[in-house]
Design a protein around this nucleic acid. Structure first.
Lengths: 162, 162
DNA sequence: TATTGTTATACTCTATAACTATA
DNA sequence: TATAGTTATAGAGTATAACAATA
């Protein structure tokens, strides 16, 4: 999860942090921790973590994909995806359906209650993002998302061969 | 450290990721993982992690601060800072000096070899950031850093009272 | 042989509680 | 009593290796 103490933001009274505050890497980390911290608190009532939310959204929009496909799209290793989908399965939010075409894999679907929940979570997420937009505007948000995608692409998006 | 499989970047052939790719939170996470992954590889020869780098930079620019002050400025809990400074101490890169004014705390300094190393690391970091600038330009970098600071501020920077 | 899902495992990062020695 | 540093510990997240069932 995120964050540790306070000062964090980077403008301490008397501490010179110049080489850090000017760097994309440092500001990226601080912003990600702050945003995820807030996100997690917004979703706490539903006991849903960011990774679980992203999995539910992807299954909702792409029903029938298997574990490897959903995991790969999110940059999650197959091996670490097992516990993730297990938790959604156990809570009755998602199901693994056997297919006749390939009996090694499962087609993933949201349950009715999973579909209901993901709609509510998407509303919560919109509120969460609204707090960002209220600060930097719609144009700022669009510009930020665009710059972040460029930065990710600059490093090949995260390449690891299993 | 970061990332998991490939696709990651967010533009899979056939997977609809719209609600995620439009969100600051998701793009922030993907970008942070990609940047840190590259950062860690750049610094692998020196066996220095991002947190260790930030601590060395802060001690270098603010010699004589104590552990709580450096930790707070970086958003690291005092308790987790111990192992961090221990590793730098053990490697002869930083030292804890007793002070006569308050015998509970240590004033932190870089050693000669610590100072030499941090200069080299700052050069490496500049190369690392150059890769980002080559993609989005100086203006893009400045805009990104500014937007990230705004986003962090929008969430109070990371507030936790110990 | 290669792939899908799985278990076991280890390492890093972060969090809380409780201790010690000073102040 | 409050603070600085410390220890112990627990929980996420992420990494690798190896296996069974199936392709």
């Amino acid at each position: 999860m995120p964050e540790q103490s306070d000062a964090a933001a980077g403008h301490d009274k008397s501490v010179d942090m110049e080489p850090l505050t000017r760097s994309v890497g440092y500001q990226l980390r601080r912003a990600q921790l702050a945003v995820f911290y807030h996100f997690i608190h917004c979703f706490a009532d539903y006991d849903i973590r960011p990774a679980q939310f992203s999995v539910m959204v992807l299954i909702d929009r792409n029903p029938g994909l298997n574990q490897s496909e959903i995991a790969a799209a999110l940059g999650i290793k197959r091996t670490n995806f097992v516990a993730l989908i297990d938790s959604l399965d156990r809570r009755g939010l998602a199901t693994r359906m056997s297919t006749q075409s390939d009996r090694r894999s499962y087609a993933l679907y949201l349950t009715d209650s999973g579909r209901t929940l993901v709609q509510e979570l998407l509303r919560l997420q919109a509120e969460h993002e609204a707090r960002i937009i209220s600060r930097i505007g719609i144009d700022g948000r669009d510009k930020l998302v665009s710059l972040l995608a460029d930065v990710t692409a600059a490093f090949g998006g995260t390449v690891i061969e299993e």
